[in-house]
Design a protein around this nucleic acid. Sequence first.
DNA 1: ATAACATATGAATAGTTGTTCATATGTTCA
DNA 2: TGAACATATGAACAACTATTCATATGTTAT
Lengths: 124, 124
Amino acid sequence: MVQKIQPVERCDCEVIHEDTVNRVREKMPLEETLYDLAELFKVFGDSTRIKILWALDEAEMCVCDIAVLLKMTQSAISHQLRLLKQAALVKSRREGKIVFYSLEDEHVKQIFDQGLIHISENKE
Amino acid sequence: MVQKIQPVERCDCEVIHEDTVNRVREKMPLEETLYDLAELFKVFGDSTRIKILWALDEAEMCVCDIAVLLKMTQSAISHQLRLLKQAALVKSRREGKIVFYSLEDEHVKQIFDQGLIHISENKE
DNA sequence: ATAACATATGAATAGTTGTTCATATGTTCA
DNA sequence: TGAACATATGAACAACTATTCATATGTTAT
């Protein structure tokens, strides 16, 4: 969602001082980097895509096999694979009629693992 | 988004066999786990929340300071902090009128780092 | 060329989400 | 108690997104 920049009055609570705010602001990564990071995690933020990535971590698969595996339509899977490819999380190769998808690199698994650790430590 | 389960006809492409699909399906984590994982990453998938988390990694801060830092309204920040707290990514403590927020644990930083590695290797 | 198959894609739609606005809750101090 | 301040929250709205449906593109075999 596009967010408007909102003028903000400084509040009176002098918890961290003006210069501390400035220090934190200076240490923050570029706006663009933080945006890209959010865009990346947004891709992970859907259970269909999570399932596809998980499946591809097990085996290289074609579109229709993923559709069968996840009990979803070919179209839905294809749309999601496009997003995953744009995010450089999966790659594809064509062999005749069939297009094979696989993970682009090892980061996916590592990001998953960090997430799983967090979940396992916070389940109720 | 709630997704209907769609009946799918097995396609003719015998890329991975029926039993391979079954093997992959058996090795997949529980539906619930994958859903929780997606929910977690969804929280990371917004640049406002990414910025808040990044700021809190630098220093414990109160709501209004975060609002000043990010040049956003107190209300918007407060809403997002609620989501972050529900996801067990931040914790809060009250000191009089002021509520301090800080990171819940070290996972946040580690998940960020994995994401940044991926981004840095795939920027155009 | 034509049929059959695998995949991709545009449009439409229903469901979701981030921000704003108004207001409520909780705390301190006079 | 009442005023001032910090934060929380519900409702509303605009923007976004995942799936579906229909159809297009690309490939193979006859």
